[in-house]
């Protein structure tokens, strides 16, 4: 992975987040939530600063980052697209919807389009199973999506 240079101002902001949680190691997850909001993702350089500030090992931070699916070590697209593959969505045709997104965006699951506009991922049950199949783009939730709707949905962005 190419190393990332973090501008000083951002470093200060990150340190401020750590301080907000009293540089307390047991607040690691809350700190990481704040850090991911600040950077959009959690590259190793960010994890190093967090480890130093909270006085915990880098291995511990890395272990936590990789455990939870919400934390990402790769930048996401401007509009992160997630297809629910939970059972309710799956049996109602989520796979076809996913295939359509892959085809139109020409990316695989876990990838971002070269222009950084969209990233594609799968997730498990967003708690909207009554609307299956479900797609989320950023904070927006689309229900009862059919493969034929995908083009129109992308057109909104």
């Amino acid at each position: 992975m190419a190393s990332v240079k973090i501008p000083d101002t951002k470093v200060q902001e990150l340190k401020a987040i750590c301080q907000k949680f009293r540089n307390d190691g047991s607040e690691l997850i809350n700190v990481l939530h704040g850090a991911q909001e600040l950077f959009g993702y959690l590259p190793p350089e960010v994890q190093e600063i967090v480890a130093d500030e909270l006085n915990v090992s880098l291995a511990h931070v890395y272990g936590v980052v990789t455990f939870y699916s919400f934390f990402s070590m790769l930048p996401k697209g401007k509009h992160p697209i997630s297809i629910c593959m939970g059972t309710a969505c799956y049996v109602r045709g989520a796979e076809k919807v996913l295939d359509e997104f892959k085809k139109l965006l020409k990316v695989k699951v876990g990838e971002t389009t070269p222009d950084g506009k969209y990233s594609l991922s799968c997730l498990r049950c967003v708690g909207a199973c009554g609307l299956a199949p479900v797609v989320t783009i950023g904070e927006r939730v689309y229900g009862r999506v059919a493969a034929g709707d995908v083009k129109k949905i992308l057109g909104e962005y």
Partner: peptide, 25 residues
């Protein structure tokens, strides 16, 4: 409010505590 971070296992109570303590769930 404590925000979860996307791990089904954290619904299991003892994993949930671990997660609240800043660890892997």
């Amino acid at each position: 409010i404590f925000m979860g971070s996307g791990a089904y296992i954290c619904g299991e109570e003892s994993a949930l505590f671990e997660s609240m303590e800043g660890k892997r769930g």
